[in-house]
Design a protein around this nucleic acid. Structure first.
Length: 370
DNA sequence: AATACCGGCGAGT
DNA sequence: TCATACTCGCCGGTATT
């Protein structure tokens, strides 16, 4: 049967929630910022509404930068992000989608892929009517608009969704795939960001059509095996990746901006202890043990570094995190004496969610196979 | 030679 | 002093077995 995949994307999610909850913001540029706690305006823009985008404000931009652009419109409003609250709203929305289609994979707080093959019996008309029902439900329950793309796979659903926003519903039929992709810039493809885009431009590949004419072997030679294959497949609209509802996190990290830049290991290790405790709470919620700990550092010049350690056994306590992170931090400073750090973090990886009180899993020795 | 680990990079929300 | 906080996967290099 024809596979049919949907992608729901909430329109400027955080900013739309803030507008909804505070009608005074309506019609004004609204910028939701993540504040680092250093000066009053230190931080970055998480997202902003369309009125703010008209001023040139974009997500990821330094807040001070955005403030300067916002001077053009005195109505502009800056609000701090309320992530835990957005998370609750997101949960409710995702539950609504789940009512119509149980095979759903969330991406961040504001996106979800869902597999409509069964519900639509491979019929795009039926899929469209389900998408409309989902949009209606979200609007009725939450007073929020979203955009949806419907297509034969995730890659195309994503691009379809992007092609009409806000409050859009776009369908790409199998027979229209190549003509839909051809005129678009390669940047639209998943996995093609600024760097790859620039490399492609230097090869005079500025449309997906041009890219689709390159032989696989050439792409692999230039971009490496995995990326070459990805570029080849996606330029032809090929993507077999499934919806992964049972998806589990592989790593959990926690990183924060220091109150002030520091090159003092002692001071940083103290900070790491707090971070480790906070990270461990999240690890407990996931009911996970971990075998790897990493120390993350970002210098005052915004270069980033990591140092990690894989342990002999799985651990499940905060001390292991803070002690290992401290040790890695020491080593880091031996390698980079005197370097000034702006942000530091900790990460646990190689997670294992089996019962932590159960006996270690029996390992089958090679001998058994000989 | 195969596998594991390490650290950097690129990309996504 | 403009520059958040996460997450995943790949690459090339080195270490281990």
């Amino acid at each position: 049967m024809q596979r049919i995949i949907g992608l729901l994307d909430m329109d400027f999610f955080y900013a739309q929630i803030e507008e909804r909850d505070n009608p005074k913001l309506l019609g004004k540029p609204v910028i939701v910022g993540m504040y680092s706690g250093r000066g009053p305006d230190s931080g970055a823009v998480a997202t902003c509404n369309y009125s703010a985008r008209e001023l040139g404000i974009k997500s990821g931009m330094p807040i001070q930068f955005a403030k300067r652009l916002a001077e053009k419109n005195k109505e502009s409003v800056f609000v701090p992000a309320r992530i835990p609250y957005y998370r609750e709203v997101s949960q409710k929305i995702m539950d609504s989608v789940r009512e119509f289609c149980p095979q759903i994979e969330t991406v961040g707080l504001d996106e979800a892929y869902f597999d409509l093959t069964r519900e639509s019996k491979g019929d795009f008309e039926k899929a469209k009517s389900i998408a409309l029902k989902i949009k209606k439900k979200v609007l009725l329950d939450q007073s929020l608009t979203c955009s949806i793309g419907i297509a034969p796979n995730k890659l195309l659903a994503k691009i379809a969704c992007d092609s009409k926003k806000p409050d859009g519903l776009t369908i790409v039929l199998p027979q229209d795939v190549q003509s839909f992709l051809n005129p678009l810039p390669p940047k639209k493809l998943l996995g093609v960001g600024p760097k790859t885009s620039e490399q492609l431009r230097q090869l005079e590949i500025v449309t997906i059509e041009r890219l689709s004419k390159k032989p696989l072997s050439e792409l692999k030679r230039f971009f490496g095996n995995a990326k070459g294959q990805l570029l080849f497949d996606s330029s032809h609209g090929i993507d077999e990746s499934p919806i992964e509802s049972e998806w589990q996190k592989l790593q959990i990290s926690h990183i924060k901006t220091l109150p002030k830049d520091s090159n003092d290991p002692k001071e940083i290790i103290l900070f790491l202890e707090k971070l480790s405790d906070e990270l461990f709470e999240r690890v407990q919620k996931e009911n996970a043990r971990f075998k790897e700990v990493a120390f993350i550092a970002v210098s005052n010049h915004l270069e980033s570094f990591t140092k990690n350690k894989t342990m002999a056994d799985y651990a499940f306590d905060a001390q292991t995190i803070s002690h290992t992170a401290a040790e890695l931090c020491q080593k880091f400073f031996e390698l980079h004496p005197g370097i000034m750090l702006r942000r530091v973090g900790v990460r646990v990886g190689k997670l294992n969610r089996e019962n932590s009180d159960s006996k270690p899993k029996k390992t089958v020795s090679l001998q058994d196979f000989v």
